[in-house]
Write a protein that binds this DNA or RNA. Structure first.
Length: 427
RNA sequence: GUGGCUAUAGCUCAGUUGGUUAGAGUGCCAGGUUGUGGCCCUGGAGGUCGAGGGUUCGAGUCCCUCUAGCCACCCCA
């Protein structure tokens, strides 16, 4: 019988990876908190309709990437492919709506998309994101970007560029859409199959086409910036002014469009140079002023972003290693097992992290393991120590060793630890 | 969803035109000190060669199918 392995496109986060992932997401949530964003959590699955209406049924996400299933009562449910629609739904049906806008929210958790897996691309992946809801002010767009930017700075992630665009709103986008169609209409037959399909389904998407046959026409195509209505134009100006105030560099990218239907006005992505070939974004976001109504709730303009944690972890400089036990307690003979366990428990209550090794293997083997555990010290308990009510305490990095009573262990280990942290090295 | 590349020990990889019991480094366990790690020496465990089928006297090696990963496309985080 073949062994059961994990589903395609999923990942087991082994301790080191788990630690790295948690560090990155907690850094994000911490930065968000420093901007006044509060964390919330929404269900992993939602009514399928939430995404069909919120994300848009012409998008790839909804058309072919959703994990949709019927539960036992026949309701159609979907594993969330993104979290903006769920957060807005939660906002709409809760008391959050009563708070003074904007309501600043953050989240981190798993998302699901049935896509072909690859590097930095999973069927279950994790996003960290924020949403600022209830306020149309463009300065908020810049604030959201600043949260993301500061987070990446804190992680020390270089080689990134912020791509910024405005795709207009309900007032001006239809005209732009028409202009685009008109521009391509005479040459429709000569366009690559894929681009014809784009024009039919979602004309704006042709802007990020990489098909060779469309290069020329794209270069001369009308630009979003030339079709923005006055309010959109002014809003976009203010976003840029605010970004300058935050001292965040950006590139205007009139061909930046996004794959989810709910975006209006400001859209942005952050690209990393190592991902450019694949056009893979580290994170993306924008403004979604009409989304709340689409879901059946009162108007609630908003702006937010979502970042792929796996990608950030992959590209960020490695962080510190996971915490190690401070002390390893070893039994040297079977008669000392009970004493070793008892000593370990007492020391844990004192506040030390203690790895207790009372296994049957040799003391030599335990010492080797202790060394590799990264612990500061080892306490050995054998027949002799039990008789004399003492422990043999050995500092691993120096080899110094002493016989101490249990009450002295905590202070001694802490002292060595301080010395390791601050007293060593070229001061 | 389309095309291409890959799959050998826990990890990184050798394996010569198909030819005996499939190797190295590292990691793991043990011995070299009746109770002491790191360096060194020695030994050991660990692989149905991704899975299934086929060709052949004989397949890790050739062919097919499947699965998974990677790359490009698509798309997004």
């Amino acid at each position: 019988m073949p062994p059961i392995s994990r589903p395609r496109g999923t990942e087991d986060l082994l301790p080191d990876q788990f630690f790295a992932m948690r560090r990155v997401s907690e850094a994000g949530l911490g930065v968000a908190a420093s901007f006044g964003y509060q964390q919330l959590d929404t269900p992993i699955f939602e009514a399928s309709e939430l995404f069909v209406r919120g994300v848009g049924d012409s998008t790839d996400v909804v058309r072919r990437e959703m994990y949709t299933f019927a539960d036992r009562s026949g309701r159609s449910l979907t594993l969330r492919p993104e979290n903006t629609a769920p957060v807005l739904r939660a906002f709409g049906e809760s008391s959050l709506r009563q708070l003074s806008p904007p309501v600043r929210l953050s989240y981190a958790g798993p998302m699901f998309r049935y896509d072909r897996p690859g590097k930095g691309r999973y069927r279950q992946f994790h996003q960290f994101g924020v949403e600022a809801i209830g306020d149309p002010e463009p300065e908020l767009d810049a604030e959201v970007i600043a949260v993301a930017w500061d987070w990446l700075q804190e992680l020390g992630l270089g080689g990134i560029s912020l791509q910024l665009n405005s795709i207009g709103d309900a007032a001006c986008r239809p005209a732009y859409r028409e202009a685009l169609l008109e521009h391509f209409a005479p040459h429709l037959a000569t366009l690559p199959e894929l681009d014809q399909e784009r024009l039919r389904r979602n004309p704006l998407r042709i802007l990020d086409s990489k098909e060779e046959g469309s290069e020329q026409l794209l270069a001369s195509a009308p630009r979003t910036s030339d079709y923005l209505c006055q309010p959109c134009r002014e809003a976009f100006e203010r976003v840029q002014l605010a970004l300058h105030a935050y001292a965040i560099p950006f590139e205007l990218n009139p061909r930046l469009v996004r794959g989810l239907d709910y975006y209006v006005r400001t859209t942005f992505e952050v690209w990393h140079e190592d991902l450019m070939g694949a056009q893979n974004a580290l994170f993306g976001g924008g403004r979604y002023d009409g989304l709340s109504e689409l879901l059946g709730y009162p108007p609630a303009p908003g702006v937010g972003f979502a970042a792929g944690l796996e990608r950030v972890v992959m590209l960020a400089p490695p962080g510190p290693p996971p915490a190690r036990p401070q002390l390893v307690v070893c039994s040297a003979q079977p008669v000392a097992v009970a004493s070793a366990i008892d000593a370990s428990q007492r020391l844990r209550r004192d506040g030390l992290s203690v790895l207790c090794d009372v296994g049957g293997r040799s003391l030599k083997g335990k010492m080797r393991a202790a060394e590799r555990s990264g612990a500061e010290a080892v306490a050995i308990l054998g027949e002799e120590e039990v008789r004399e009510r003492r422990l043999t305490l050995r500092r691993l990095r120096s080899g110094e060793q002493m016989a101490v009573r249990l009450e002295q262990v905590y202070v001694q280990v802490r002292e060595w630890e301080q010395d390791t942290q601050f007293g060593e090295g070229p001061a």
